[in-house]
Amino acid sequence: MKVILRNPRKEVEVSGQRRVKDLLTELDILPSTVLVIRGNELLTGDTVVGGDDILEVRPVISGGGGLPAPAVPVR
């Protein structure tokens, strides 16, 4: 199957069948940080994928801001 990753965009070929959650573990991706999309459907972690499937792994984390840690003075 073909897996399309975003930010940065990258395509990887994965052979064999496995559950979505196992695929994400192999790709070192936390399940709560992405949508896994096949065509016009969202897939849950227990869905078995493989064969001719084309999956998009779309990140959901966004934002910016926050203060950097202030330097701790030496005493």
């Binding site: 984390i61 934002g63 910016g64 801001g65 926050g66 203060l67 950097p68 840690a69």
Partner: peptide, 8 residues
């Protein structure tokens, strides 16, 4: 961004 590190 710091907030992204906190989210992670």
């Amino acid at each position: 961004a710091t907030s992204l590190a906190h989210k992670e």
